[in-house]
Design a protein around this nucleic acid. Sequence first.
DNA 1: GATGCGTGGCA
DNA 2: TTGCCAAGCAT
Length: 371
Amino acid sequence: MARAGLASVGQDPGGSPAGRLLDWYDRHARDLPWRVSPLARARGRRPDPYGVWLSEIMLQQTTVKTVGPYFEDFLARWPRVKDLAAADTAEVMSAWAGLGYYSRARNLHACARMVAGELGGIFPQTEEGLLALPGVGPYTAAAIAAIAFDEPAAVMDGNVERVISRLFAITTPLPAAKAEIRDRLRTLVPDTRPGDFAQATMDLGATLCSPKKPACSLCPWTDICAAAAQGIAETLPVKPPKKEKPTRHGAAFWLTDGKGHVLLRTRPPKGLLGGMDEVPGTEWREQKAVDHLPHAPAEAPWEVLPGTVRHVFTHFALELVVYRAEVADRPQAEGEWVPVDSLTARALPTVMRKVVAHADPDAAKQFRRRK
DNA sequence: GATGCGTGGCA
DNA sequence: TTGCCAAGCAT
């Protein structure tokens, strides 16, 4: 933890910036389920490309804490890429339920099938090759290339954008600043341990160089950080103003048959909650409907439940009224009758789990097993 | 370049 | 309570 005195600025007190960051990483790397520790890596242990790929897809826009149990569950169910490729899509969607951004799950499965099939079970080892895989964009391709294959790729995620924009005091707003951030990052990427360097920059952003109240005094780069020197670290990177979220309204219909089954539907494969299961409902509109019942999946003695279900998506908030009915004989209705006690096996997104909890609190208890 | 796409944690 | 935002990608 040697502190670089003013006299040593520009003198490279602890080696190159990358070297100093790696030194910090050797001492502070977090122990994560998909990570090979710096020590084990130094001893020659290599991360499994399948595990690196799986974790990176899950980590897109998703926190480490949230991903943990899902990663363990996927790896236990499908230890190798060919196992995942052989799974049913419905089973994969069910296992992904709750993690969000469900197109990731579809692309994950498509990618597994591509790798296990036409690629002979071997992941591409270059950024370019990885970029051609479904669900793999610039960040993920670079991350896999660096972490799994020791390619000196510039791995730039939200954390790294923050770290680099501060290090060089880049005040251009995002996303226009990305090109400059990437150029700056490239000057830092070392030829040795590029994978650890990538993980170190992300760890730095996730721990010390946080969006608010960065812990500059503990940072291995504090003495070479332009933003810290100018006292503007917390203001960077500059982001565009946020758009406001409208609230949409709708209704959901919980219909049971008296024999422990409930009517569910599967949403279309693309778009919001694509390919996921749902409790049948109305469309979701900003205007509140006067009467929901004409949109019910069947005629039944519908009873409106008190309260509403609220859920916030990326670009709008949703408020649902829940109706409940039980019928002795199943009416003609689009969808599938599913045992109420096996809903965990279904691909129910979080908003629909909230609907279940509202309509039948006992049934919702089965969801508590995970996490 | 802009937009659509989930969820949970935390200040 | 409310807003912020986290290891982005596809279109």
